[in-house]
Nucleic acid binder design. Sequence first.
DNA 1: GATGTTACTGATCATTTGATCAGGAATCAA
DNA 2: TTGATTCCTGATCAAATGATCAGTAACATC
Lengths: 209, 209
Amino acid sequence: MTTGIDRPTKRQKRVLDFISDFQLENGMPPTVREIAAGLGFASTNAVAGHLAALRRKGLLDRAPGKSRGIKVTSDPTRRVRMMPVLGRIAAGRPIHAEENVEDYVAADPFLVRGFDDSFVLKVEGDSMSGDGILPGDYIFVKRQSVAERGQIVVALIDDEATIKRYVPLNGGAVRLEASNPAYGPIDIFPESDENLEILGVMTGLYRRI
Amino acid sequence: MTTGIDRPTKRQKRVLDFISDFQLENGMPPTVREIAAGLGFASTNAVAGHLAALRRKGLLDRAPGKSRGIKVTSDPTRRVRMMPVLGRIAAGRPIHAEENVEDYVAADPFLVRGFDDSFVLKVEGDSMSGDGILPGDYIFVKRQSVAERGQIVVALIDDEATIKRYVPLNGGAVRLEASNPAYGPIDIFPESDENLEILGVMTGLYRRI
DNA sequence: GATGTTACTGATCATTTGATCAGGAATCAA
DNA sequence: TTGATTCCTGATCAAATGATCAGTAACATC
């Protein structure tokens, strides 16, 4: 036998992969009989043998007696929270209103801190292309009403949401800068008619090609 | 009763939360008896009543007869696969060698197709900044040895990995274009000493601020 | 008061599921 | 040849689990 001491045989690997895929698809491990059916075994004992072998080789954990008590040791998956992708944002309405949710994306803790205080926006327009933020990108935004100089914020000017770099000016005025030189800055003065509200600051970005 | 038509009562919400938390922690839904034990019920029928109510209100899905056949409808979590972030890539060595793995990120199916054939790279250098790919970004790459004109590829030139836009030229030559005008294109001719290998094409991008 | 809903206990039954026994066929090595 | 290992069928038993019935209590609405 040339099989390494803790390497599965081909058949055993098929069983292991079936369990991983089942877990990924169904959110729970399969039963012994589901494995047998999935791989075409007529007997549960065929599965039992493979599970015992995989356990010996340290590739599986089992919870004896428990239904679906099978856990792949080096589980390549992790539970992450799904975050809503918001569509139009309008002033005066709760940002998390259900009709705003367009889609959901999985947010790695890697990308987002404070899930409950964050949301996701799809970028429209190329005003921030100088910062590598392109139309169609998804940006992660942490909700907060204040920002520091230079942070990229999502702001509501009157009734329109926009993504810009935040730069406070003297006298309580605020400048919102685009990073695409084709767009000029937007200045908001305290005495202005315009109403500025900071919705949050950008913490991460997703793009799919 | 002021309860909205499809809102759970307080007790029902407790049951729903227990199921969500259990799923998050254990990677599978609880059994009816595990719910009863977790919430201090002496009878499985207490749980059955709540599950029926939650199902009526559209908050649960059930798979009748199946063990752990409970699924929270608006599950805020999803199983995603963890993908290795590769460090240095060198020719002649298996790309997935363990010593290459620097970190892991959760990859949404949204971003990646074909998990097993993909990997993640951290971007160094600003040669692709014109395409919104900045130093420090993480890009998702699907492994394949051929590419189509205009796709962004990860290529190995002799012993160095690089990210560029792929443009085939006449006569079997290949041009690799940077998108930052400060960098010129790299042309590889068939008769050249240089050895070009396409490692894969970019399918997605992550950035954290 | 009558009615309906929510929220349980306690018990029982049927099905699903895990575990195990007996054995057969194929492969490989000594 | 013998023995070890893998890989499977077929059958059976016991435990885990889902489903259901009967009944009690609290509470709100009409």
